[in-house]
Design a protein around this nucleic acid. Structure first.
Lengths: 376, 376
DNA sequence: TCAGAATCTGAATCTCCTC
DNA sequence: TGAGGAGATTCAGATTCTG
């Protein structure tokens, strides 16, 4: 078995493989037989999540949520899903170089099973990474926390090889000179980035954002490396790989996805090296909610807040709400209520007493923010 | 060490259990035999993750260990850890009420195994929650991302029971009126909150911050509920439970931890009852039928109701139903019918005219409810 | 043409009570 | 225990509509 490609040199010029920068049609495990042992530098896998949906879900405005109910996401049992997971992980490890690494993305429906299977197969977990979504779908029924993140696992094929690629210094430099954390913030893939079919509908139900793949590729590959995506879908991995000067190999079962991905990748312009670091930058100002002050004991439950002229007062409750005269609600709602207004900025309206002086609670929020500024 | 808070239901206050607000010494599974079936409302578990796997996971010079023996050790360790996990999860489920929920915290070393085991045992995962640390330990060797979070799993004992406690409205109000997400931001436990032993060393290696437990308890329990912590350690769960007017039961093997936790909890001052009431939303309001408004003459039979834009209209009949275009039915059914939808909240859809302005009939329901409150 | 309002949408294990 | 009815429930951002 041969691994002809070298990592740092422009391998394409030396000995291009027939499968390089192509999409292989077929089932993941069977299709990977076309690749030699130890032939790829990195694997990004976005396997089916095995969502177990009940009936139809409607938004509060009665519109129907377009759920991921595709055939490829259906499994008969956890055992069936585990067998599927073992099979593709083993096939992937065969084609992965010993110095390569594997990324898998999932949600709580499947990621625990994938992680445990990885460990059972003696993959070596390097990190779990949290993709925090800036704009996740809400929980419409108010029965759970808003499911606002997905989880990635980054693993080496075994515990022994420590020679995997990790561009620590580049990531740190791009991250304002502090080391990159395990929680990342990105928007979901929408707008013009989202691939549409001929009817203007989304071409793939679970297209991942290019920014996410860009950070992964920038972190764990070098220019010229070969990246395998065994569940190629809409081809985000291929598009980003081409743009960042990496090679790709995709495996995909459905012709419609192959066609869409092929067109997409053909339109990608490779970027010059100088532009790349921009992609790993951070964004977004931390929002601080009132209950953070209560939970962190900056405002104790039972504290009495007033407006600047002490005309109104309210008591802070342990759940992070205010109560006054039989009414209760958020700092904003109750501020509006006591004044008989429709709206109110509770942060500037409500005051606490500090050394005899009244100060808006916004002062405390500013303190928290100052402590959080280090974070993205 | 008992707190005498009563719950909304009288039964528990009448016959307090001997184990209530105590720490049971012993191994988790054996000690839980002291508790009856279905006796606790919530469980928070911070299980050990390096007990079985410590050597394999944390030894710095893996490459020097014989590969075959090393793999065998790992495999044996994972199996042992899984058996341990199954055992304590089953013991916990027996003592958990069917309407209760279970929280487990862990890192990538163990959380995938715990999550998969939960699913194997048919626990029903409600959310995975990410605790983002404001001040995590850096990665010193620069070979991985900074491990800046831990993962919690929130689960019901099975898929059927949907009656678990989730204080959605309180969380939302405390979070500046947007629903609480699955990613939480807290500092690690340090400074004066961190328990020290007589030598000034940290009393427990993995003490959790009280703010984290406070959010968990505020989200998934009510005042007076019983919270079990099968790996009690330094007693954060007990301390926060006492402060927030919840009961606790702890299980702990090491006498040193029991002593430290006992002293810690004894020093906790419970919050006053007034600060502990939990904000509830419309779901908790008493039900008012539409015909009450008709019978009390707040809406006269023959009144014409419309939607907010006067696109649809219907006439109120004396029996408390609406009629429109030959159709008749409840305010909800007819609201759905005229819009061609499956469902509709008639209280917010239908409007009546008051001094030239359209107001939702929900305004009238609120008046009825206000009147009912005086009677109570 | 522009500004503001209205509509649409995203990997979702999403109600509760009564008969 | 299953069916049916009451009625509660959403955030951010892109796109389309309207005046």
């Amino acid at each position: 078995m041969s691994s002809v490609l070298t990592k740092t040199k422009p391998s394409r010029a030396i000995a291009p493989q027939s499968w390089l920068d192509t999409i292989i049609k077929g089932d993941c495990v069977a299709a990977l037989e076309a690749l030699p042992d130890h032939s790829v530098d990195m694997i990004f896998a976005d396997p089916p999540y095995n969502l177990q949906l009940g009936g139809a879900l409607h938004r509060p405005d009665q519109s129907l949520v377009d759920a991921v109910d595709d055939e490829w996401d259906q499994f008969a049992s956890f055992e069936a899903y585990d067998a599927f997971t073992r099979a593709w992980l083993l096939a992937c490890r065969r084609v992965l170089k010993p110095t390569g690494t594997l990324w898998v993305i999932g949600s709580y429906h499947n990621i625990f099973r994938v992680g445990a299977t990885l460990q059972d197969l003696h993959f070596w977990i390097l990190n779990d990474i949290v993709w925090r979504k800036t704009n996740p779908m809400p929980n419409f029924k108010g029965r759970r926390f808003q499911n606002a993140h997905e989880t990635l696992i980054w693993a080496a094929p075994n515990a022994k090889h420590k020679g995997y690629t990790f561009n620590y210094d580049a990531l740190k430099a791009a991250n304002d000179d502090v080391q990159m954390r395990s929680d990342w913030l990105f928007p979901i893939c929408s707008g013009s980035e989202r691939l549409k079919d001929e009817n203007g509908q989304k071409a793939h139900p679970t297209q991942k954002p290019e920014a996410l793949l860009a950070r992964i590729l920038m972190a764990s590959t070098k220019p010229g490396d070969i990246v395998l995506d065994p569940f190629f879908g809409s081809g985000t991995t291929g598009a980003v790989a081409k743009r960042l000067g990496r090679h790709f190999v995709g495996v995909e079962r459905e012709q419609a996805y192959i066609d869409a991905a092929t067109r997409r990748i053909a339109a990608v312009e490779p970027l010059g090296k100088a532009t790349l670091s921009v992609l790993t930058g951070k964004k977004a100002e931390p929002r601080v909610a009132f209950n953070v002050l209560v939970e962190s004991d900056m405002i104790k439950p039972g504290t009495v807040l007033t407006d600047a002229r002490r005309r109104h007062s309210a008591i802070v409750r342990a759940d992070g709400t205010l109560a006054s005269g039989g009414e209760a609600g958020s700092i904003h709602r109750l501020g509006a209520r006591v004044q008989g207004l429709d709206a109110c900025n509770g942060w500037t309206f409500w005051h606490y007493e500090d050394e005899g002086a009244l100060k808006p609670i916004d002062v405390l929020r500013a303190k928290v923010r100052a402590g959080l500024e280090k974070l993205a």
